[in-house]
């Protein structure tokens, strides 16, 4: 699988950062959930974030599109700094796609309507064009024949692929994935990972919270390990999995591998 991808180690990344997080802190009331986060994501870069439950992985990527608000430091996405300015937040959300653990499709809309909603209302695309784009991405996730169905009629794996297509329809510059396969039955995980690998091949910038080692090894440039709100270790997938530096990383890896 790994050799299907362009050799990611030699792949030349454009130097412009698309996401920059500088000295960022976040609290939930008194609870210091993210501590001194520094992270730069370049265009086309794919980063895997892993770590024990409760370490703040979801919170970190949710800060990038302001589903959570940070209290200190700066987050700059596509040149725009995240502040309380609603217009900026909406602009950033247009450029940042998000895929959730539980898909969060809109159950009252058909698959096609789920996909065209953002382009029509946010991007002001004409309906026909939006539907064309939607069908294009549904083809891509191998699910075009389900366009007229409702989310409730699809399997989990199919729903997650629709969710990915829904984000893609907005033509995002960055995609965030929060444990996209952990709510799926084992036999459906592969179909979703395959779609994500296709995306990686096309050079999409991706931040993925996941413990899927295979995906990390074949598609990621970097793996971040988080524990107790800090980025504890950061390395290439090969080094990270084969030669972890930190005691807590070793402990964590031994837990997910066995």
């Amino acid at each position: 699988m790994a050799n299907e991808l362009p050799d990611k180690n030699n792949e030349k990344l454009e130097s412009d950062p698309i996401v920059e997080i500088i000295d960022m802190h976040k609290w939930f009331d008194d609870f210091h959930v993210l501590k001194n986060i520094n992270l730069t994501v370049h265009k086309g870069e794919r980063i895997i974030i892993c770590g024990p439950s409760g370490s703040g992985k979801s919170t970190l990527i949710r800060c990038i599109n302001r589903l959570e608000e940070h209290q200190r430091g700066r987050i700059i996405v596509d040149g725009i700094e995240l502040t309380n300015d609603l217009k900026n937040i909406e602009k950033i959300r247009e450029e940042v796609g998000m895929v959730f653990q539980h898909f969060n499709l809109f159950p009252h809309l058909t698959i096609l309507e789920n996909l065209t909603l953002g382009p029509i209302w946010v991007r002001k695309t004409a309906k026909a064009e939006a539907e064309e784009t939607a069908m294009f991405f549904l083809e891509k996730v191998h699910i075009a024949d389900q366009a007229r169905k409702y989310p409730g009629q699809l399997s989990g794996g199919q729903q997650q692929r629709v969710a990915i297509a829904r984000s893609l329809c907005m033509r995002p510059k960055v995609m965030l994935f929060d444990e996209p396969t952990s709510a799926l039955d084992p036999e459906m995980i592969k179909e979703v990972l395959d779609v994500m690998i296709d995306l990686a091949k096309e050079g999409m910038t991706m931040l993925v919270v996941s413990h899927e080692m295979g995906f990390a090894k074949s598609a990621a440039h970097r793996v971040l390990f988080m524990d107790e709100g800090e980025i504890l270790e950061e390395n290439t997938p090969e080094e990270f999995f084969d030669n972890p530096q930190h005691e807590r990383t070793k402990l964590f890896l031994s837990q997910i591998l066995h």
């Binding site: 940042v96 946010v122 907005m170």
Partner: peptide, 16 residues
């Protein structure tokens, strides 16, 4: 909450 978040992450404003 997931429905709110999915709508927000598409960039829909409050009214939409």
């Amino acid at each position: 909450r997931g429905q709110y978040e999915a709508a927000e992450s598409l960039g829909l404003n409050y009214y939409q």
